[in-house]
């Protein structure tokens, strides 16, 4: 259990999209050799992407990483264990909202960013044209997890340093350094675009019901898959194959 906890980040993927899809949608292949025997498998594709608040499967992300363009590298310091989750109450340490507390609405681990609801915002003008002044909208700027924010201790609602520790049950938890209280990971972290909680998911027409997914129908048998299927379908194979050699 510890190993799985150690390996996987606790930060849940809000979009609930498979990793393969995210990789596929952001892919930019410039040139690829035909996959034939007379070619070596070579692909020239974009390696470095600029991650922003736009998610990799969106059109805005593609617009910011247009094929053929290069942008300056952003140094992102490695964070060993991601510790800021959606729904966490945090205190802002910099900017015009310094000292204020807010709830994390979005975490962007590619840039070590969190976005806090209603804090660190600025006005943005969109849709301005020659005879139209545009619309002013309020948008929240991201905050760096290493320097700009700190967690709030749930016992006294004051900002605090924290540490990852193990409970006696072997569970890894965040512990406030000041009061020694566990700072639980909020339930909001498990919410996804598709459901609030896994139990609240509405089964669609093409979903297999959970009861049937969990049903055990496998009976161990001394047969290969093909032999079992042939028996099931009443297919009798009486011919003996000719002697052959594998080399």
């Amino acid at each position: 259990m510890r190993i799985t906890q150690f390996l996987g980040s606790k930060l849940k993927n809000f979009s609930n999209l498979p990793k393969e899809y995210i990789e596929r949608s952001k892919k930019q292949v410039y040139w690829k050799t035909p996959r034939e025997v007379n070619y070596l498998p070579r692909t020239v594709e974009r390696r470095r992407f600029r991650y922003t608040t736009n998610r990799p499967w969106t059109g805005q992300f593609r617009q910011q990483n247009m094929p053929g363009t290069m942008r300056k590298k952003v140094f992102v310091e490695p964070v060993e264990e991601w510790s800021f989750f959606r729904g966490d109450r945090i205190e802002v340490l910099v900017g015009k909202d310094k000292g204020k507390q807010g709830i994390v609405t979005q975490a962007i681990p590619e840039r070590n960013w969190v976005i806090v609801e209603g804090l660190n915002w600025h006005y943005r003008r969109v849709g301005a044209e020659k005879d139209f002044p545009g619309i002013i909208i309020k948008s929240e700027a991201p905050l760096h997890v290493t320097t700009d924010v700190r967690l709030v201790d749930p016992s006294d609602l004051q900002g605090t340093e924290f540490e990852w520790r193990y409970t006696e049950e072997g569970e890894k938890v965040r512990v406030s350094m000041r009061s020694g209280r566990i700072i639980p990971i909020p339930e909001t972290n498990n919410q996804t675009h598709d459901y609030k909680t896994p139990k609240a998911y509405i089964e669609r027409d093409k979903d297999t019901p959970a009861a049937i997914v969990g049903e055990i129908t496998f009976q161990p048998k001394l047969a290969t898959f093909e032999m079992d299927i042939m028996e099931e379908m009443d297919i009798k194979e009486e011919r003996t194959p000719a002697k052959s050699y594998w080399y």
Binding site: D194, Y195, K199, E203, D207, A210, G214
Partner: peptide, 9 residues
């Protein structure tokens, strides 16, 4: 596959 392993159907 359904998302949850609960929910008898």
């Amino acid at each position: 596959g359904a998302v949850v392993p609960a929910l008898a159907s």
